[in-house]
Design a protein around this nucleic acid. Sequence first.
DNA 1: GCCCAGGGAATCG
DNA 2: CGATTCCATGGG
Length: 280
Amino acid sequence: MKEKNISVIKSGRNLIVKNVYPISLDQTLDCGQSFRWEKSGDNIWHGIAFEKSLSVMQNGDELVFFNTAESDFNNIWRDYFDLDRNYEKIIKSISRNRVLKNAVKVAGGIRILRQEPWETLCSFIISQNNNIPRIKGIISRLCENFGKTIDGGYTFPSAEDLKGISVDDLAPLRSGFRAKYIVDAVNKVTANEVDFDKLYTCDIDEARAELMKIKGVGLKVADCTLLFSFGRIEAFPKDVWIKRAMEVLFDGELPKEAVPYAGIVQQYIFHYARLTKLQI
DNA sequence: GCCCAGGGAATCG
DNA sequence: CGATTCCATGGG
C-alpha cells in the first residue's frame, strides 16, 4: 500500500513534497467531495481540517505546504490527501477500459480525501436534494455560528460542540428540512449510538447500516461518508449525476476492471460527467 | 411562476 | 417489494 518514493523536504517554514503521482490539487479540492476549500488568486488553496489551518499549492509535480511542521504533515495531511495510496497502479488497471481511460484524462488527478468523519457525515446530510453552492453556504454558516475561531477561519463544529442543539438553534443556517436530520445525527453520535471507530474496518454493509441509524442518512450519504472519510473505496455513492452517467457510459453497469476501485472510479466519472455535461 | 439541486422518509399500491 | 410525493431554500 505504501507508495515508494514520496519525499518531504524542509524549505524554511514550508514543506516541499515530491514524487506524488498523479495528483491535482484543483481536481481533488473542487470535485464535490469537500466543501470548505477555497483557492485564492495566487493559486494557493486554503482550508481547515482537524482544527488545523492549511495553505497549500501545487507547482507541477511538487506540493508546497506553507508554514507546516513535519509532524502535522505526517500526522494529518499525508493521510488527508491520501498520499500513500498507489493511484498509478489503480489507473493502469482501470485504463484497460476505453471510457475510463478518457475519464482519467480529465479527472485522474483526484485523490480521495480522508476527511473528519463527523464533518463528512454532516456535510452530506446537508447535501441531499441540494446544489453545491448552497451546500457550501450552509456549511459555512454552520462553522461561523458553531465552530471555533482559529487563525485563518473557523473549525467545523464537532458533534460534541453541537451537543444539545435544537432545530430552532440551527435556523441561521437556513438548511430547511435538513435541520432535524443534523439534530438527530448530533444526538446519536454524542450518545455513542453511532460508532465511527469500527467503520474503518468492519464489513461494508455493516458500516452502511451503522450510519443509516441516523434519520436523514440513506445509502448515498452513508457511502459518501465511508468513501470521503474512511478510505472505503468499495463504497459507490449513487447520486443523480452518477445514475445518468452510468446509463450513458456503461449501460448501467460498472465495468469489471473498476469494481475493486469503485469509489475512486466513481469520483472520476462524477468529475468527468460534470465537466463534459454528459455530452460524451 | 417553473424547474432543479451529490436524497431520504413517508405513504402508498 | 417498487413507485410516488413531499420536504425548505435559493439560483437560473
